[in-house]
Design a protein around this nucleic acid. Structure first.
Lengths: 157, 157
DNA sequence: TGTTGGTCCATGCGTACGCATGGAACGGAG
DNA sequence: CTCCGTTCCATGCGTACGCATGGACCAACA
């Protein structure tokens, strides 16, 4: 028991829960990858556009994007470069910091993200909504939200 | 409502739950990737050894491994080729099917998987067990188990 | 102001990836 | 037995990836 009264989980309990979470994510991701909804984008490129769509002004620093991605910073740098060539984002200076690069959705990028997002959302409803009911989804979301939020407060090793 | 009485989730509910699950998995995976526990393996190579360690005789067909991986079949084929060169697995014929390739852990591969697995498990306890208590982990595991199991029964589109 | 340490992004390079394809083996029909 | 469609794995090829590094900029301090 910890001092806040929660029941400290064993290594085994934590490992089983993580494995289940991981496997579920892999199984779903495989289906989503196969979906014919991504248009000219890869799933990783869509993820960046999606992240941008949730940022104020559809704009974020490269560094912020890298924090929410499994890609390394150099890989993300080149992915954004490709997105710019294809006209979905622009790169510009960050006001007040000459080092930074501001990545901003173009109107075309915004529109593409919305289109793909709509199709993807239908697929999510099919595969996720078809497996769990509304209460179960709410419970799962609350737990995964808490799991992610806690990461900010857990030191590295 | 469906005819079995469960409350049919909206697209929004399903999308929010999936996004939360996805983001939690990405956040944790980033920490695990940074962990200095993988020895000579990449995280994807470890995943294959781990999967094999749970198969009877530490052996599985290439096709079975591909089903539980985000890699494509050609990529997995070459990953296994590298694992064989490094001595962690062997490739052999499948009895009764001349097309198949049986991938089998060597003693060294078994030992390596166990070592890395122990270190990784400690990290899981730290980052996952440090965020949710035992009851919460059990609830999350039950939901993600159900989510993954349901995929087998949901048609493609 | 000059220096030093840290942050942010880009680039060279070797490797692993996905896509398209090919060859070998299975299985059922005629 | 032969054919034909399917399954399973390997390989050629172009591209994206991660690692190591470098240059530009920021912030703090002597």
């Amino acid at each position: 028991m910890t001092d806040d009264g929660r029941k400290e989980p064993s290594t085994r309990e934590a490992a089983l829960a993580w494995e289940s979470l991981f496997r579920a994510q892999v199984a779903l991701m495989r289906r989503f990858q196969r979906d014919d909804v991504w248009g000219p984008l890869t799933i990783r490129e869509y993820d960046v556009l999606f992240t941008l769509s949730g940022c104020p002004g559809g704009s974020a620093r490269l560094r912020e994007l890298a924090e929410n991605s499994l890609l390394t910073q150099p890989s993300l740098s080149r992915l954004v470069e490709r997105l710019e060539v294809d006209g979905w984002v622009t790169r510009g200076p960050v006001e007040g910091d000459g080092r930074g690069v501001a990545v901003t959705l173009t109107p075309a990028g915004t529109e593409l993200q919305r289109e793909v997002g709509r199709r993807h959302a239908r697929s999510i409803r099919h595969f996720v909504g078809g497996a769990l009911d509304a209460d179960e989804l709410a419970t799962m979301k609350a737990l995964t939200d808490k799991l992610r939020a806690a990461q900010a407060g857990i030191p590295d090793a």
